[in-house]
């Protein structure tokens, strides 16, 4: 990413969207769509579904821009959360195993690599990278599978071949360590 508008610009764009300025939504699209499609695709796997997710998300950004307030976190975090929630809902509503079962087997290995790659791609000086690195390997993997790949507790337990309760408590403890490390 070469040019990243400061978050302040996204704040202003959301305010302009709420006023009915379509150019502001277009500006958000120009800056963020390439990332957002990639984020959605990492979760739903298929490019066509990822575009569908981003399309619906932009309509929601447009209709809900008036709700954005700085106490809801950064404007970018708010926008990405809308895309992530859409992608997760699509996955859960249709059932991952059904939607993508034909590509599942082929892509499973790629997906596992992609999940870990997300951690390696973090900036070397990033606090998140360092704190994820301080976790046990399996806890780190569980957290990344959930956030990056959109896996549920059950799917993580299955893929890591551990009992569901163990997966839940490892992830919970991993998240607690992460919060402590990043505080």
């Amino acid at each position: 990413m070469l040019i990243s508008p400061v978050s302040d610009d996204l704040d202003k764009a959301l305010v302009a969207c709420a006023r009915g300025d379509q150019m502001a939504l277009r500006a958000i699209f120009e800056c963020e769509a390439a990332h957002l499609v990639a984020v959605a695709q990492r979760i739903v796997r298929r490019r066509d579904l990822a575009e569908e997710v981003v399309q619906e998300a932009f309509i929601r950004i447009w209709t809900h821009a008036h709700q954005y307030q700085p106490d809801r976190g950064s404007a970018r975090g708010w926008i990405y959360a809308i895309v992530r929630n859409r992608a997760l809902n699509l996955l859960r509503d249709s059932g991952r195993e059904h939607t993508v079962e034909e590509v599942e087997a082929l892509q499973e290995r790629d997906q596992a690599d992609e999940v870990m790659a997300a951690w390696h791609r973090l900036d070397r000086n990033s606090r998140l990278r360092e704190c994820l690195g301080a976790l046990d390997e399996i806890r780190r993997r569980g957290i990344l599978m959930a956030y990056v790949g959109g896996y549920s507790h059950g799917e993580i337990a299955g893929r890591l071949q551990i009992p569901l309760g163990t997966a839940k408590s490892w992830i919970r403890r991993g998240l607690a360590s992460l919060r402590e490390c990043m505080a």
Partner: peptide, 22 residues
């Protein structure tokens, strides 16, 4: 506030992704 903080904590994992051609 906790949700906002959590979103911003994990956001770098999305920001560092290889952008798609759109």
């Amino acid at each position: 506030a906790a949700v906002a903080a959590s979103r911003d904590r994990f956001l770098p994992l999305d920001m560092s992704i290889e952008p798609a051609a759109v």
